[in-house]
Design a protein around this nucleic acid. Structure first.
Lengths: 149, 149
DNA sequence: TTCTTAAATAAGAATAATTCTTATTTAAGT
DNA sequence: ACTTAAATAAGAATTATTCTTATTTAAGAA
């Protein structure tokens, strides 16, 4: 955990080293993001910013958040793409998700099944589901990337 | 793990006990769901079914999958609602998600941080992220439900 | 078996989230 | 100040999901 001024400093350096421009939009979006604890959507950030910066477009917020993930100053909370995914497998299991092709595989692991919910969480939530969510690139997509130069 | 005939039998019983009608659409969707290992979207199931049952509507597939989750014969793979959620917190942490109001809280837990990736997974995937995803109902939403009668 | 009725469905409109296209603007190095 | 590739704004397009309403049907009752 570090203070916000320091994070912003590092953000600016990151833009430098990654060779992307430090625009007022990007700075505002970054500030909004790190000031929020609510894991905001693009739309949510857009509405907050639109007060101070009325000409910004929602598309820019989307693109910018994507860029932030790419350069490693933000992440997208776990999710499985834009569509809901369903399964009829009600056995206790976990998931690994290829962020490239979207494939989800089931993971069976006894250690994962035994995870305990921390007391400070179970005090505040009635927990309905515990799952270990792994994200990565599947072998097939790795190969495709290799051949891509 | 049980065979499909048995699952379908149990599905029919569940419809009975839950008092929902056993329609041809529901049966087809259920069969399609348990025959698939790909954690399909509503759209995906719709296209598979539309061959055998050309008059089915996509909306029915959506509603039906929702119903299946409610009666406990299917689940929606972990996700955080219809919108992407972002965060600037790059420290190692985990999430608990209220499925009612959508709130996400960060969870810090040393045990969660030490999870190992099973070999059969790391052989097939380059893992980029490991997160424990908890789902439940937050205290506030629990209270609101109590007062709802 | 036929009748009844609440539940379920189909169709299409509506809404919501995200991405694309294109013309214009601008950050940042020269 | 000049140049230029990158970034942005605006609006259209696409994709996912939900809503509305009229019709159909499963399943229990007669």
């Amino acid at each position: 955990m570090m203070n916000k001024e320091r994070k912003i400093e590092l953000f600016k350096e990151k833009c430098q080293t990654k060779g992307i421009k430090l625009t007022p939009q990007r700075l505002l979006i970054y500030e909004e993001l790190i000031n929020s604890t609510e894991h905001p959507t693009a739309e949510r950030i857009y509405s907050s910013i639109t007060q101070k910066f009325p000409t910004i477009s929602l598309d820019t917020v989307h693109r910018t958040l994507e860029t932030f993930c790419t350069i490693g100053v933000a992440t997208m909370a776990e999710g499985l793409g834009n569509s809901k995914r369903f399964e009829g497998n009600m056995d206790n299991h976990h998931h690994v998700h290829c962020v490239q092709c979207g494939m989800i595989h089931d993971v069976y692991d006894a250690n994962y099944d035994q995870l305990l919910v921390p007391p400070q969480v179970s005090q505040e939530f009635k927990i309905l589901k515990k799952i270990v969510h792994l994200e990565g690139i599947c072998r097939k997509c790795q190969t495709e990337y290799e051949n891509m130069d």
